[in-house]
């Protein structure tokens, strides 16, 4: 039984959709169930996902030139890896544009700390319960969130020197 099937069996109500594209198993889950599922992933012996390898977000504003409509603007993407069983799983959580907020995973994986700060910095998604949610790559004076699709890629906010 693959990790995807195992999670789907346990949390059939919380899973929105699943797909396997080019061998990457992906689960889309409800934001409210994130904490529970993450705990399950980490603490179930047959899954044993001890690595939170990567955490990022994707902005689907005007995706594919507007041809593909997404219900929610953002998706937070988690990549898990299990050292013992050598398998991977991707979990996605849809996030609404109006109240971009997800539960933090810092209490389960220490690596979530900086990743979540980066997602806050770049996408403006808040993580409920994060101990130190402040900007990490950009400076505090920076206005807006750079990786959002509506932030122009060359809009500069210099600290010193001429503005251009």
């Amino acid at each position: 039984m693959t990790p995807l099937q195992r999670v789907q069996e346990q949390f059939s109500k919380e899973v929105i959709e699943t797909h396997t594209f080019r061998g990457d198993e992906t689960l889309m889950i409800h934001p409210s169930a994130l904490k529970v599922i993450a705990k399950f992933l980490k603490e179930t012996a047959e899954l044993d996902f001890n690595f939170l390898m990567d955490l990022t977000a994707v902005d689907y504003l005007f995706f594919a030139g507007g041809r593909i409509q997404k219900e929610f603007r953002f998706e937070v993407v988690y990549h898990f890896y299990s050292l013992k069983h050598n398998h991977r799983l991707r979990i996605k959580v849809p996030v609404d544009e109006k109240s971009p907020e997800v539960d933090t995973l810092t209490d389960l994986w220490a690596s979530a700390d900086w990743y979540e700060r980066e997602v806050w910095d770049m996408f403006g998604i808040r993580f409920k319960g994060h101990p130190n949610l402040k900007r990490i790559l950009m400076y505090e004076q920076f206005q807006g969130h750079a990786l959002r699709k509506d932030y122009p890629f060359n809009k500069r906010q210099p600290l010193i020197g001429p503005k251009y």
Binding site: Q141, Q143, Q157, P158, L159, I160, G161, P162, K163, Y164
Partner: peptide
């Protein structure tokens, strides 16, 4: 070099452009 006017200007004319001023303006 001033990227707005695209010409070089003497350094002292561009002095005093500081962080605090930028914050005030923004």
């Amino acid at each position: 070099y001033d990227p707005r006017t695209k010409i070089g200007r003497p350094a002292h004319l561009q002095q005093g452009y500081s962080v605090s001023q930028h914050i005030k303006e923004s």
